[in-house]
Design a protein around this nucleic acid. Structure first.
Lengths: 239, 239
DNA sequence: CGTACAATGTGCGACACCGTACAGATGAAC
DNA sequence: GTTCATCTGTACGGTGTCGCACATTGTACG
């Protein structure tokens, strides 16, 4: 896969005013983002912020006993590392590449400086952060009230929105780890979805056959997040 | 209860530089915050931001079927209405007074103007927002992995930190609604805590007898949130 | 090919929590 | 003091998920 994709595939970068774009452009460094790569570790200061282009990143909270829970996902609609400009510099969560691809990154200091100009970049980033908050809130509520089945649908849709095509490369084991549920549970739920004709899968490759069907079977959480993203980030997940 | 408490009981207000403080002071309007009052409804534009002084506010997500889940709590360490300055103006969640008390409020426009000066106020508010994000993240993880028992401990501690004294006025029914669990479940968990000598309660009045005991029985989530609050907000929950 | 490993399917007991139903206990109002 | 509403305790079947054990299927690679 070529690493030199157009950075404007990332919607935040695409939304930059011309002046900022010209300033940032030479500083943007293309990076491969292979499956499983840890972009930022819990409580560690980031050296870069990452703008995914084709990759998807999971924000995970990892508990003391090793169990984990996905808090939010970041694709080409967003950026990894909001804690940098929020002022805290670190977060108690981990950012892991969930779906391999490419992205571009920017030195932390550059990002901070740009943010502190307090111009349109700042407002863009803050709006994005609010969209991210919405996703976190919805995850919390979803974890409390919805079935594994519904959550799997939500998760597939969130991932699908951030990918081209309708295929995800993703084993059930991995999904289970991200969602913080048992692998067997995912197997059962996935089987049900396959029997319903909504997806087809084999050996770590999932194909979505009936997207509207998935949306219907998903809990409301997906729609709420999608709607907020669209509202807060013009062109957020349109491809 | 007197409504005219010192606004500096709120730690964000207390942390304001002198110039800002003098500017804000005349605009701060004392308000009663009775139990159950809804400060902001889902997807509705706020007309004020609220700084609790003795009250505690719950941020809730209310699902389509009426079930709810607490996302975070805000006491005198924070402010209700961060979406205003984040740029989104609304959020898909509801803010409800969980423990009656007093607070002060500020007109939304005033808050926006102050934020857009891009000075110390902005940085203070952004750091607070990050602390709030931490709480949300932890809630999501906690909802996924921890027992009702542990969550009740966490919840009691979070509330206790935001109150003077060691008594909460709070029925089990109300706690159940906030946590998004069944009332019977809370009864059982509370009973266990009482039998362990950690709390005593009757008819909507809970007294914490053994705080360290609660901390030990709680999941890690409480400690993580507390630590982040302390780190991000000097003097956050010290009374 | 055949072996090794990864991915998926299945069965089952354990367990936490739910929802319903109802019973006692307490406090406020008259 | 009696009444009534609110709050709390208890019992029990139903359900979803877990954790374990193991069978099966697909894929890579010698």
């Amino acid at each position: 896969m070529s690493i030199a994709l157009d950075p404007k595939k990332n919607h935040l970068l695409a939304a930059l005013p011309e002046a900022e774009w010209q300033r940032w452009r030479p500083q943007l460094e293309p990076v491969e983002m292979p499956l499983g790569e840890v972009l930022s570790e819990s409580d560690r200061i980031l050296d870069h912020v990452y703008f995914p282009l084709t990759a998807i990143v999971s924000l995970l909270y990892v508990m003391e006993d090793g169990a984990s829970a996905e808090i939010a996902v970041v694709g080409n609609e967003g950026v990894v590392g909001v804690s940098l400009f929020m002022g805290g510099e670190t977060t108690p969560s981990r950012a892991v590449v969930q779906s391999a691809g490419v992205g571009v990154r920017l030195k932390a200091q550059v990002m901070m400086d740009e943010f502190h100009r307090a111009g349109p970049v700042m407002h863009l980033l803050l709006r994005y952060t609010q969209a991210l908050i919405t996703q976190m809130v919805q995850t919390a509520a979803c974890n409390r009230h919805h079935s594994l089945d519904q959550q799997l649908c939500r998760w597939l849709l969130l991932s699908l929105d951030r990918l081209e095509g309708r295929d995800l490369v993703m084993t059930q084991e991995l999904i289970a780890n991200l969602l913080g549920v048992s692998r067997e549970g995912v197997t059962e739920a996935a089987l049900a979805l396959q029997e319903a004709g909504l997806i087809r899968y084999a050996q770590g490759q999932i194909t979505v056959l009936d997207r509207p069907g998935l949306e219907q079977r998903s809990c409301e959480c997906y729609a709420v997040v999608k709607k907020e993203c669209d509202r807060l980030l013009p062109n957020s997940l349109a491809m």
